[in-house]
Amino acid sequence: MRGTEKALVALGVLALVVAPFFFYPVFVMSMLCFALFAAAFNLLLGYTGLLSFGHAAFFGGAAYFTAHSVKVWGVPPELGLLIGMAGAALLGLIMGLLAIRRQGIYFAMVTLALSQMFFFFCLQAPFTHGEDGIQGVPRGHLLGFIDLYVPLNMYYFVLAVFLIGVFAIWRIVNSPFGMILRSIRENEPRAISLGYGVGRYKLAAFVMSAALAGLAGGLKSLVFQFATLTDVTWQMSGEVILMTLLGGIGTMVGPIVGAGLVIALQNSLATSQFPVTVVTGAIFMICVLVFRRGIVGEVIAFAKRYGSR
């Protein structure tokens, strides 16, 4: 990482540290949860080249697992998050084993079908409470003594988890494993000819992406203190795709920017008469027509062109 990039990362982290003193903490926490979700999805789409229409299953599934374990089993919040991640990873392993044998649109359709099956499971399962969802989820005490009902304590806990999750994604992407994922994305037949077990790498990336998406979902259930069917619908999968494409696939910062933009629009237009979906759809069309690489992708491409002169 170059000096300029390190400085920008430090400024970004500093901005997030002081954000709750200028913005409503729950709003910023919501942005961080969805930013982590989008970054986890980008690990699969942007760096492996696999388009999944079923990531809501991992996000919402982990929200249910975390909420149930914290509320019913009485586990501490940090253990609840780990349970949510483990559940999402297991779900990702099962779905991945079934979907990874297909490619392109067939892979996307299989993930969508499996995600819808999980949605109906959540609708009928007793522990999810159907359409009512799991409500009144306690935030508890982090490490047994940090009260997460205090807004600032909860915010910095969410920020810490977000930074750990993003760092894990950055580490994966910049490891030899990540280089192989990029080679699979760019030219899968050549990766096969070099002797790599492409199927195993794809499955590993799928499970990692599912686990990190689950971390975001579990965190969201603690922030809002509920888990509902909204988190496992196909629309949630569509939202994370939109966030990633708006920001720029294949970039570390792009999905975070895209998530922030979408959540900010939803929050600002929530009390207006203008439909949020129309605005986000219009912005998406503009980005497709003008910013084909996404907002951050175009900025990076412009910086490279300017720097090469």
Rank of each mutant, 00 (worst) to 15 (best):
L114K: 01
L269D: 11
V166K: 09
L269E: 14
V207A: 14
M179F: 02
V198T: 05
F53P: 06
M252V: 10
A303Y: 07
A160L: 05
Y155R: 10
A89D: 04
L163N: 06
Y155F: 05
K220D: 12
A213W: 01
L112P: 12
C122A: 09
E5Y: 14
A125L: 01
A301K: 09
G136F: 01
M29Y: 05
R185P: 13
L114E: 01
V161P: 08
A210K: 01
Q116T: 13
L44R: 01
R185E: 11
F145S: 12
R305W: 05
R305K: 10
F22R: 07
L81N: 04
A39D: 13
A282C: 10
T271G: 08
G218D: 02
R309D: 07
V72R: 04
L203V: 00
G87C: 05
G12W: 02
V28L: 07
A270C: 09
R182S: 12
L242Q: 07
F34E: 12
E5A: 12
V17C: 12
G92K: 03
L112N: 07
H68D: 14
Q266T: 10
L148T: 07
I192Y: 14
S183N: 08
I263K: 08
C33S: 11
A89G: 01
A89L: 04
M179Q: 07
R305P: 00
G133L: 02
T48W: 03
F157Q: 09
L265H: 15
R101E: 03
C122Q: 13
L32G: 04
T277Y: 06
A303I: 10
G218F: 00
S30A: 09
L245S: 09
G144N: 12
E239F: 02
F167R: 15
V17T: 08
L90D: 15
R171V: 09
R309L: 13
N153F: 10
V299S: 03
G3H: 12
L246C: 15
A62K: 03
I283V: 10
P138L: 06
A216L: 00
V9W: 05
V262Y: 02
N174P: 11
G250Y: 01
E298K: 03
L143P: 10
L16P: 14
S221C: 06
Q135V: 08
N42G: 08
V207I: 04
Y24E: 11
G199V: 00
A35G: 08
G260L: 00
G104S: 14
A7G: 12
A191C: 15
G92M: 03
V262H: 05
A259I: 06
A86T: 06
H55L: 03
L79P: 05
G140Y: 00
Y196D: 14
I300A: 07
M85C: 13
N174L: 04
L265K: 11
L93C: 04
V70K: 02
G136A: 06
I283Y: 08
F157R: 11
T230C: 10
K304C: 01
R293S: 06
G297D: 08
G281I: 10
A216S: 10
A15N: 15
I100R: 02
A270Q: 10
M1S: 15
P151A: 00
L142M: 05
M85I: 13
L81M: 06
A160D: 13
M31A: 15
R2I: 06
I172Q: 15
V150I: 14
R102A: 07
T251C: 14
L289F: 01
L51F: 06
A125E: 11
N187I: 01
V290D: 13
L11A: 12
V278L: 09
L97I: 14
P77D: 11
E131A: 04
A10W: 12
S30G: 14
